[in-house]
Write a protein that binds this DNA or RNA. Sequence first.
DNA 1: TTTGAAAGTGTTAAAATGACACCAAGTAAT
DNA 2: ATTACTTGGTGTCATTTTAACACTTTCAAA
Lengths: 249, 249
Amino acid sequence: MSKEIKKKPQLELNPNVSVDCVIFGFDFDKLNVLVINRSEKEGIQWALPGNLIYDAEHLDEAANRVLEELTGLKKIYLEQIGAFGDPNRISKESDRSWLQSIRAQPEARVITVAYFSLVKMEDYQPQPSSFATSAEWIPVNEIRELAFDHFEILQAAKARLKQMIKIRPIGFNLLPEKFTLSQLHKLYEAILDKPLDKRNFRRKIQKLKIVYSLKEKQSGVPHKPSQLFSFNTEHYLELTQTGYDNFGF
Amino acid sequence: MSKEIKKKPQLELNPNVSVDCVIFGFDFDKLNVLVINRSEKEGIQWALPGNLIYDAEHLDEAANRVLEELTGLKKIYLEQIGAFGDPNRISKESDRSWLQSIRAQPEARVITVAYFSLVKMEDYQPQPSSFATSAEWIPVNEIRELAFDHFEILQAAKARLKQMIKIRPIGFNLLPEKFTLSQLHKLYEAILDKPLDKRNFRRKIQKLKIVYSLKEKQSGVPHKPSQLFSFNTEHYLELTQTGYDNFGF
DNA sequence: TTTGAAAGTGTTAAAATGACACCAAGTAAT
DNA sequence: ATTACTTGGTGTCATTTTAACACTTTCAAA
């Protein structure tokens, strides 16, 4: 806040292009999305965190910036979903006034480039940010409506994540360093939105060798403590380098 | 050409957003891409067909429009790849002057939304278009360089097509109404960029029931004439409705 | 000590995959 | 008419992958 402007040569906002982020988190039970609250008088209206980009900014940088501004998280898994640009997307009156409040020209045609990212929920406990009244984790499946075309973007993000996890083991970005196979199992079920047989799942994961078992076990649970595992980065890199592209879920 | 301007209320070009199309065609041997020629004095510089969008236009509409302006083809298979927007993408001097010639502000930061589309080459024989000196089909694998960031876009398009064809039988958009299994086979090999066993390929295709055999055969070929097939649209729709998402190539 | 709750483990039948080689049917050349 | 050439078309088998399925273990709490 107290910093000088002009870290970068051109700090011109581009009024036509924004980025929006679909930030997924996993609470060991279901997928959640980070949304910001515009707190209209008439009810609550949620939106995806996003903002206009600077003229001199790469799109990916802009997405990282927005994410960091909101959550303080850097260098996390972030992937482009695509561009969305219905010229009539700013349909509701509330959308218009909201845009005005964050210095965008409400009349301008804005296309938005959507990203999705996967974060460890433990790494971010929402706090009100600079321009959003509040940010909150909401279970994906409870969301029925969002501002602008954000609901459409969310659907696309879910579909993309589902597709992606069949191809690359990106789910680990949603889990802590140490996790149990049951947690991983639930995560896959949540993303793929279908039950997976426990034994078949475990067999498949083990055969892929993308996790390795730690010497440590869970403790303090009122049932048999489970083995802890970590993600095997090296083997993952091998796989992706050989063009491996199917995890068969 | 002789039509009145103003079919749509606002015909303002948006100087910040363009669409570029990667148009694939198949010559029964390899994949080709439609490129336009900027015919600089110093050598030839190819680019992907693209243009700025209108303010009042959906992105998908813009892509369709650009495609139709260039090829006259309507309602063909078209899918978004994503947004590309290195602020420094207009690096070469030749790029700058080219942009000037098509009424874009060369200094403006442009992000471009890339699409790929699949067309039957027989349906389009390139002719010089309004602003391009010429358009040409070029084998994908012979392309080493393109204007702006178009080469990067092409790579992304190839990767996306490869990924997509494993999930949906979109290859049929590249073939004529009637085709042989060998042609389909070659098409899959070209897209996946690896050899596929003939018998295994045929078995898989037949089991999917996405083609049906016509009563007709090839004629005029200096070898055993092959059975002709057509794409089974109905069965394809069934598959996609049931969420089927793996063709297992 | 009992109860509850999640962890962990193996087999089998069915389906999918990958590797592999020969004959058939046409045209063109002699 | 025969031959050569070219591409079309076909089946089997061994291996791997998948999907379905149930019971015992281990801990904390009552």
